[in-house]
Simulated assay, not measured.
Amino acid sequence: MIDISELTVLCDKLGCRITPEAPLNEYITFRFGGPCRALISVNSASSAAELIRFLKENGIKYGVLGRGSNVLVPDEGFDGVILHFGSDFSNIEENGNTIRCDAGALLASACVRAQQLGLTGMENLFGIPGTIGGALYMNAGAYGSEMKDVVCSAEYIDENCNIRTIRAEDMELSYRSSIFSGTDRVITSVTLRLKNGKPDEIKNAMSECMAKRSSKQPLEFPSAGSTFKRPEGSYASLLIDQCGLKGFSCGGAMVSEKHSGFVINKGYATCSDVLELCDRVKKIVNEKTGYKLELEPVILS
């Protein structure tokens, strides 16, 4: 068991809220998973760096969560501390045709701010659930647009707990991957460079994008968005369709009947249900088509 007394003192000093034994199902879009030992609401990059330094020096396991839109939390929870980048760390500032967003700012909020300022380039990203930090971490994208198309630079905490700045061209942005993926680097802010446009036209494009999402995706159910990465040469949803797996279920988890690229929570799914279903889907698709599907969400472990 982690003794969080010293950590609580540090959080008080930094002005960060700490919640012992926080239920993580409330912090991910799939709405399942057990608790963590403590959840800290981060309020600045410097606070995050100091907290990470403390956790590393004391050998305490930790993880970072934004909106949890691409994360699976095990049923037994997470035996460590979660640094939550949410509303306490979500400031958005504009400067000409650039927008700087704290990592906890919602991607949708950044899109709306850009529209209000008459800045174009983010319309197709509107409706992607998650924070701006999470979106850059995985180079999120939709309908032909990706974060790499609009990001200018980012601030992050490196492996030695130093705050650094990195240019877009050095981020190694590719399909659902970046230089941050699978590392100890923690994104703390993202700066976007956009182009001048007309607010009404941008708003209409955003509305059209959201209508398309609503008509094709099962937004009425908890999920982690697209469940499988796009395999080279095909599409996960197409392959799953071809295998007749729409509506295929394990416990409370089901392949959406609306969009087979989504595994949804029918209301009582566990993480074990989702992982079992995904394993079965991967096996059947591989046996019938030869394609190997790869899970897109990250498992918090």
Score class of each variant (00 low, 15 high):
residue 74 P to A: 09
residue 81 V to W: 07
residue 86 G to N: 13
residue 35 P to A: 13
residue 98 T to Y: 04
residue 17 R to N: 09
residue 10 L to Q: 07
residue 77 G to P: 12
residue 28 I to F: 04
residue 85 F to A: 05
residue 87 S to W: 01
residue 57 E to V: 06
residue 27 Y to N: 14
residue 42 V to Y: 02
residue 57 E to F: 01
residue 74 P to H: 08
residue 69 S to K: 07
residue 73 V to D: 08
residue 67 R to P: 04
residue 16 C to E: 06
residue 39 L to C: 07
residue 55 L to Y: 07
residue 73 V to L: 07
residue 60 I to P: 10
residue 37 R to S: 13
residue 8 T to G: 00
residue 69 S to V: 04
residue 69 S to P: 01
residue 57 E to H: 10
residue 66 G to M: 07
residue 76 E to Y: 10
residue 56 K to T: 11
residue 5 S to Q: 14
residue 57 E to L: 07
residue 80 G to P: 11
residue 63 G to M: 06
residue 94 E to K: 11
residue 36 C to E: 08
residue 96 G to F: 03
residue 51 L to G: 06
residue 100 R to W: 00
residue 11 C to I: 01
residue 12 D to R: 14
residue 17 R to H: 07
residue 101 C to W: 06
residue 52 I to G: 03
residue 98 T to R: 15
residue 55 L to A: 05
residue 15 G to R: 02
residue 84 H to D: 05
residue 88 D to Q: 13
residue 102 D to S: 15
residue 51 L to A: 02
residue 12 D to I: 02
residue 87 S to A: 14
residue 79 D to N: 15
residue 77 G to K: 13
residue 50 E to L: 09
residue 67 R to A: 12
residue 41 S to L: 05
residue 2 I to S: 08
residue 55 L to I: 02
residue 70 N to W: 01
residue 38 A to M: 01
residue 34 G to L: 06
residue 48 A to S: 14
residue 46 S to N: 10
residue 7 L to S: 00
residue 96 G to E: 03
residue 20 P to Q: 09
residue 12 D to Q: 14
residue 2 I to C: 10
residue 63 G to I: 01
residue 99 I to K: 09
residue 108 A to K: 13
residue 89 F to D: 13
residue 7 L to E: 07
residue 13 K to M: 01
residue 12 D to Y: 04
residue 23 P to Q: 09
residue 88 D to C: 12
residue 3 D to V: 01
residue 65 L to N: 11
residue 16 C to P: 02
residue 77 G to F: 10
residue 10 L to I: 05
residue 57 E to N: 15
residue 56 K to I: 04
residue 33 G to V: 05
residue 108 A to N: 15
residue 92 I to S: 09
residue 33 G to W: 08
residue 94 E to C: 04
residue 96 G to C: 05
residue 97 N to K: 08
residue 30 F to I: 12
residue 80 G to C: 08
residue 14 L to E: 04
residue 93 E to R: 14
residue 44 S to W: 06
residue 93 E to T: 14
residue 106 L to A: 15
residue 21 E to I: 03
residue 2 I to E: 13
residue 102 D to H: 13
residue 97 N to W: 02
residue 42 V to H: 01
residue 103 A to R: 13
residue 91 N to E: 14
residue 34 G to N: 11
residue 84 H to F: 13
residue 77 G to A: 12
residue 108 A to V: 06
residue 85 F to L: 15
residue 72 L to W: 07
residue 43 N to M: 00
residue 10 L to D: 00
residue 19 T to R: 12
residue 34 G to V: 06
residue 33 G to P: 10
residue 6 E to F: 03
residue 102 D to V: 03
residue 89 F to W: 12
residue 54 F to L: 05
residue 90 S to H: 09
residue 93 E to P: 03
residue 33 G to Y: 08
residue 20 P to G: 04
residue 99 I to R: 11
residue 27 Y to H: 15
residue 63 G to T: 05
residue 74 P to Q: 11
residue 89 F to T: 13
residue 37 R to M: 06
residue 22 A to S: 15
residue 37 R to K: 15
residue 27 Y to M: 08
residue 88 D to V: 02
residue 34 G to D: 11
residue 84 H to T: 04
residue 46 S to W: 00
residue 58 N to R: 15
residue 44 S to Q: 10
residue 16 C to M: 03
residue 35 P to Y: 07
residue 106 L to M: 14
residue 39 L to I: 02
residue 64 V to H: 09
residue 99 I to G: 05
residue 65 L to E: 11
residue 104 G to E: 12
residue 31 R to T: 11
residue 21 E to P: 00
